[in-house]
């Protein structure tokens, strides 16, 4: 009844406002909206000014036709062959690169994540490591690959080490969120039972983190796999290198078979990763 009374008093006060007064009180939102639209228009105009459509290249239509005919008539020998230059082998190599890159990245990310979590580390250290993580994320993976090639030489190994480093950025960012969302009340109850710090970590912290860590890792595997297909362009192994070579030398039927291989690979992995992650989320 208390609340009812309060509402009545409030109504009595407010009822002095007439409908017309209320109408005139309308917040001037349209000014904000026009502002946003104008800003967007200016941005688009400014960026459009420099992107010139210079028309097709002399061979543009030929390339387009070639790619379409390549996709419709892929090189079946290449698609089903078993040698080291054929599609199945390259796909397996791409998967191998992504698997290793993700696993190493996920392991390397753990110390980074704990060092950058604000609820565990003192703030200055946390911010320092956040800056490092951000830097790792900003450098494009292709640039990382180009630098690592100097160390490992061209080949699949370069792809692995590149992906391990690149994955740290995103994975540790998501780990940090999981760590900062930890439910600390569980630790209190473990304390009350007289657990040692190690026992608290084993039974209070790890069970909370494992599911989200695994989910993050699988998600990153999905991304790494797509990334691994492009790393080949700079010579870091996988299917990308062969695809680009064929594109540049215009062997369309080979291009077609590589594109088919790529599509099947990514579709399967994406489907599997979504299934596994939704299963993890349900427990």
């Amino acid at each position: 009844m208390e609340k009812n009374k309060f509402e009545k008093v409030e109504q009595a006060v407010e009822s002095k406002l007439t409908v017309l007064e209320m109408y005139q009180r309308a917040p001037k939102r349209w000014l904000l909206y026009t502002g946003i639209v104008l800003l967007l228009a200016v941005l688009v105009g400014w960026s459009g000014s420099d992107v010139n459509f210079t028309g097709l290249t002399a061979t543009g239509t030929e390339v387009a036709k070639g790619i379409i005919s390549g996709i419709t008539h892929p090189d079946m020998g290449l698609m089903l062959g078993t040698s080291a230059t054929d599609v199945p082998y390259l796909i397996l190599q791409t998967i191998a690169i992504a698997v290793l890159g993700t696993v190493f990245g996920a392991i390397l990310a753990i110390p980074f994540a704990f060092l950058a979590a604000e609820n565990i580390m003192p703030k200055p250290i946390a911010y320092l490591f956040r800056a490092v993580i951000l830097m790792i994320r900003t450098i494009p993976s292709l640039v990382w690959a180009l630098m690592w090639i100097r160390v490992t030489g061209p080949g699949a190994a370069c792809g692995v080490i590149t992906q391990s480093v690149c994955s740290i950025g995103m994975i540790s960012k998501m780990y940090i969120t999981a760590i900062e969302d930890l439910d600390t009340r569980i630790l209190e109850s473990l304390d009350a039972m007289g657990c040692t710090p190690f026992q608290k970590i084993r039974y209070g912290v790890i069970p909370q983190l494992v599911a989200s860590f695994i989910s993050t890792t699988i998600y990153r595997f999905d991304i790494n796999l797509k990334d691994a297909t492009t790393l080949g362009i700079v010579g870091a192994g996988g299917i990308g290198a062969s695809l680009v070579q064929c594109l540049n030398s215009r062997r369309w039927s080979m291009v077609g078979s590589f594109i088919w291989g790529l599509m099947v690979l990514v579709l399967i992995i994406e489907y599997a990763s979504t299934r596994i992650r939704s299963k993890l989320a349900r427990g």
Partner: peptide, 18 residues
């Protein structure tokens, strides 16, 4: 569309549109 890496799309576009 999502299966094709951006770089491959860009390469094809560059071949077609200069």
């Amino acid at each position: 569309i999502r299966t094709l890496p951006t770089l491959v799309i860009a390469l094809v576009c560059a071949l077609i549109f200069s």
